[in-house]
């Protein structure tokens, strides 16, 4: 017995060591996922983390043309931040950016919802036509789209003024759409929303196809109006999709740059400043790279807050499923 027990112990233990012994291999297995993540992490670090680090570092420096030529900034602590927080243009720009974002997101989501509902009601070939139209808008590179819009609203030779005049809406000959910031922003916001609708509308339509027709039928039999059915059945079911498209739209619209920059011929007046434009103008037009970076850092901070909300919602949605 006594001689057997070690054997038994050994035989019991025998399968154990082979599993346990190559600690190296176990570690390697545990490390494999991290290893797989490594290339992506390196890319992310190179294209995101390093520029971000550099941006933050720049925001604590005086960095003008003199410093640019020598590739060496001059540390000045938080002076850039003090300067922007005491700058009324900065606060106006921030408020304007928030307002523009809000208007764009609301318009995008409402119009896209209407289009999505329309898509669900259409016969299949009309739906195909409309979807193709949406895809064309989506596929138009933003710079091309802006050029086309610029031509349409051109002061001297634009088709918008010509058409409106011919239609008898009023005398729009030489109407300058950008002279008044309200009508100018009207044009820019239309342009942004026009470009943003396809993605949101198609995403929402995809969601709508998942809403069971039986539920809506049952509601109709119970005497619910279509609005009531939409509000109490469709909307709650689509909530996860709405959370995603609204968060993404906020993130996209908050950092709008091209539409404003190009439609104003790259010389926007302060009435047309949004955060991204203000940062760019400060950096590249007056060579105050440190100050421009500080504005960009504030913008990144605000975006990070919005993203935290977005990521939390995504995680919550994941938990439910």
């Amino acid at each position: 017995m006594s001689s057997r027990s070690p054997v038994a112990a050994a035989s019991v233990a025998a399968p154990f060591p082979p599993r346990r012994r190559p600690l190296g291999r176990r570690l390697r297995l545990a490390a494999a996922p991290y290893g797989l993540l490594l290339p992506a992490s390196v890319v992310v670090a190179a294209v995101l983390a390093y520029p971000l680090y550099y941006l933050v570092r720049l925001s604590f420096q005086h960095y003008g043309l003199f410093q640019l030529v020598r590739h060496k900034g001059e540390a000045i602590g938080t002076a850039n931040y003090a300067a922007i927080f005491h700058d009324s243009v900065f606060w106006h720009t921030l408020l304007r950016t928030v307002a523009v974002t809000a208007v764009c997101v609301v318009l995008t989501v409402v119009l896209s919802t209407l289009i999505a509902l329309l898509l669900a009601e259409l016969s299949s070939w009309v739906r195909l036509l409309l979807t193709a139209g949406l895809i064309f808008v989506w596929a138009t590179p933003v710079v091309v789209a802006i050029s086309i819009w610029s031509w349409m609203i051109d002061f001297e030779f634009g088709v918008a003024n010509w058409t409106l005049t011919k239609l008898g809406v009023g005398n729009f000959t030489h109407h300058d759409w950008l002279a008044n910031p309200w009508s100018g922003w009207g044009v820019i916001i239309s342009l942004i929303v026009w470009g943003a609708i396809p993605f949101v509308a198609i995403t929402l339509y995809a969601g709508l196809t998942q809403v069971s027709g039986e539920l809506l039928e049952a509601a109709a039999i119970d005497g619910a109006s279509r609005w009531r059915a939409f509000r109490d059945i469709t909307l709650p079911l689509l909530k996860p999709i709405y959370v995603i498209v609204i968060s993404l739209s906020i993130i996209w619209d908050f950092q709008v740059f091209n539409q404003v920059w190009l439609i104003t011929n790259t010389t926007p007046t302060p009435d047309y400043f949004v955060m991204a434009v203000y940062s760019y103008v400060t950096s590249f037009k007056i060579s105050e790279y440190g100050l421009g970076s500080a504005i960009a850092v504030v913008m990144v901070g605000i975006m990070a807050l919005i993203s935290v909300f977005y990521v939390r919602q995504m995680v919550k949605l994941g938990d439910v499923e």
Binding site: F155, E156, H174, D176, L178, A179, N265
Partner: peptide, 17 residues
């Protein structure tokens, strides 16, 4: 002048009108 009040002398070049 009936030129744009929000553009400069390069948008469009006055030679065009």
């Amino acid at each position: 002048s009936r030129a744009s009040k929000t553009n400069d002398e390069a948008h469009p070049f006055p030679s065009i009108p």
